[in-house]
Write a protein that binds this DNA or RNA. Structure first.
Lengths: 185, 185
DNA sequence: ACCTGAACACCGTTCAAGT
DNA sequence: ACCTGAACACCGTTCAAGT
């Protein structure tokens, strides 16, 4: 609050005339981000999987530009109008994909949890532990205790292209959605 | 730090003899939680999918008992020995499932991101917005703007059993893993 | 070795007072 | 209406000083 007040060129207490709380301020900031997240024109006339893809990439783009917001997307549920609109896009896409209605809310939570989770992990550096030393993570333990790591060998030393990985993940989730749609009752 | 010092019955500065930082303290706490996460005996002799299931449920159980830890699992990468051990369990399971080695690290990140994301969402209440009013979320917008919500109707008003949902999600991810294993090159 | 007192540089927030 | 000054009740952390 004090830093924001200085940026605005005003005393900290002046802010409380315009915002109730620090929490309310953060909620408002998240709301602004979410309103920019859904470019409804870029979604019209596209197939359901393409609409989900655009929405997911928009979510990742937001957290790349505003890393501080990544964790807030987890803490605050989708109650603001823009957040509800984003959820509705996913609902509509899943219905169009042929997912049984009883599975739609669950799959929406599965997809949004992964997408926000990926964005938050990337923003907080969870995916890039040893940017300097790629083998840093298993330095502490002997290879005999890590059969999985030693079995993978060179694949662990490659630098990861997170954009390509996100794309591959979304494609796998697309197939998951189609599999659920296929087993409709 | 001050609250912890009071609980221990000591002055705040005494803590700095035993821990470098507040961040180091939190890292240590997460480390302790992760060491309890992997009961390696409950994992021996089981099939790969059962081992992943046990690990996922253990992760969710930890964040249910210690909600404060949920966000830390996202911020800090898997560098501690216990965290690396958990990752190795997933690697080994995916290899045993027949996933191509080049896809194993990506699928590990996909699975762990979802599992931690689910746990964090549950701990922070993201999945239960209107515990009182289940229709609260779309009160702000007209149904005409939310075709997905209005199309789903009664399915949105049911209370969610998060344990059953988590189980169903894990089963869908199991099928995703098998699908990736099937298309090995 | 381990702990303490005092101090520094911060927070978010309230409340009466200013214009 | 909108902003300010002073103050309250907090933080994490440093540093010299104690035993």
């Amino acid at each position: 609050m004090r830093a924001l007040a200085e940026r605005v060129g005003v005393t900290p207490m002046a802010l409380y005339r315009h915002v109730k709380d620090k929490a309310a301020l953060l909620d408002g900031m998240v709301g602004r981000l979410l309103s920019a997240l859904v470019p409804s024109d870029a979604v019209d006339g596209q197939a359901w999987d393409e609409r989900l893809r655009v929405l997911a990439h928009a979510c990742r783009r937001v957290t790349q530009h505003h890393p501080w917001a990544a964790h807030l997307l987890f803490s605050r549920p989708a109650v603001t109008p823009d957040a509800v609109r984003a959820v509705d896009i996913i609902y509509t896409a899943l219905i169009e994909a042929g997912v049984p209605e009883s599975d739609v809310p669950r799959l929406e939570r599965l997809i949004s949890t992964f997408v926000i989770g990926f964005a938050a992990s990337e923003a907080s550096g969870r995916f890039t532990p040893g940017t300097l030393d790629p083998r840093g993570r298993r330095g502490q333990l002997p290879d005999s205790e890590l059969p999985g790591h030693s079995g993978l060998g060179p694949w662990l030393d490659l630098p990861v292209d997170l954009t390509a990985e996100f794309e591959a993940d979304l494609d796998d989730l697309r197939q998951l959605v189609m599999a659920v749609a296929r087993r409709r009752d």
